[in-house]
């Protein structure tokens, strides 16, 4: 209970920090957003009006105070293009992105963790080498390129899966059919990371004294790796999943664009080209908060996985 409270207050501080950072980062780089949004030929009056509308004519600390106050009440400004509240726009496209990110993460975990354990178990063997080379290429090809290549192969050549969209109509099956390729590509690209990181986490545990003792006592190797070592490596592996979640959100943006799927990524991109930067700021904020929430949940899970951590 105490732990939960501490975690919640930590979470509040971090979220506040994220709000602060999104505010200042955008203002740190020189240049005038109003000028950028309206272009080079904007009149002085138009610039002044937009600056007033965005609150840019006020001192920075006033802007910051207002920004935080509004953020607390869930007001992240509104889209300059549609005029709708930014939060509304984001919540509208959140489900599509959440489905893609979740499906991708499931694929990544289901492939990545067992492969990581397997390669650690057979360190130095040819199967270890082969898997690690594939994983190296997996983290080295841009995810959007993998997406394009898979469209070329699976939609245009083999015609197994549709290349575009998320099927707004249609039943669950058509929806899943549209999800296979994007989630598969996202998942495989993230799986390459998870495999590499899981392997090093396992190797580290396998080098510990308790494992050496278990081996000396004649515990079968299979049991040593998949029961004893895995149990000890679960916390680092959970941490890996947390780290890759942030990474996969970034990749999901690119995947959404490649497959023309609706979602937060497509929304942010549209907002960027429309120079609708309040919407971009809000979108980035929401995704960063999502990362923090997922990592806090994982932090809680550490306690369940490793009883030593829950008493600390």
């Amino acid at each position: 209970m105490d732990r939960l409270l501490r975690q919640l207050s930590q979470l509040a501080i971090t979220v506040f920090g994220i709000v602060t950072v999104t505010f200042f980062l955008v203002r740190m780089i020189p240049g005038d957003p109003a000028q950028y949004m309206l272009g080079d030929y904007a009149t002085e009056e138009a610039l002044a009006t937009l600056r007033a509308q965005l609150g840019l004519d006020q001192p920075v600390y006033v802007q910051y105070g207002l920004y935080v106050l509004r953020a607390v009440t869930g007001d992240f400004g509104s889209s300059v293009v549609t005029g709708r509240p930014a939060l509304e726009e984001i919540l509208f496209s959140l489900p599509d992105s959440a489905i893609l990110a979740f499906a991708g993460l499931v694929v990544a975990v289901v492939i990545g963790i067992p492969l990581g354990i397997l390669t650690a178990e057979r360190q130095g063997s040819w199967s270890d080498m082969l898997i690690m080379i594939v994983a190296l290429f997996g983290i080295s090809f841009p995810v959007f390129w993998l997406g394009l290549a898979s469209v070329l192969l699976f939609s245009q050549e083999l015609k197994w899966f549709p290349a575009l969209g998320a099927s707004s109509g249609g039943g669950l099956l058509t929806h899943l059919h549209h999800l296979v390729l994007p989630a598969g590509v996202l998942g495989i690209s993230v799986a390459a990371y998870i495999t590499r990181l899981t392997r090093s986490a396992m190797l580290e545990v396998l080098g510990q004294d308790c494992i050496r003792v278990a081996r000396a006592m004649g515990v079968p190797e299979r049991r040593v790796v998949w029961r004893l070592a895995l149990k000890n490596a679960l916390v680092p592996i959970l941490a890996i999943v947390g780290v890759t979640f942030a990474w996969s959100l970034g990749s999901a943006i690119l995947i959404e664009v490649v497959f023309s799927r609706p979602g937060i990524g497509s929304m942010i991109l549209k907002a960027v080209s429309a120079r609708d930067y309040q919407l971009v700021q809000a979108g980035v904020l929401v995704l960063a908060v999502a990362v923090v929430l997922v990592n806090s949940l994982l932090d809680l899970a550490y306690g369940l996985v490793d009883p030593r951590l829950s008493t600390r």
Binding site: L25, L249, G250, I268, V272, V280
Partner: peptide
């Protein structure tokens, strides 16, 4: 906590 790519995207969005 910020996905690195997203952070870069936001900065580019605000400043061209």
């Amino acid at each position: 906590a910020f996905p690195g790519f997203l952070l870069a995207l936001a900065l580019v969005a605000a400043r061209g």
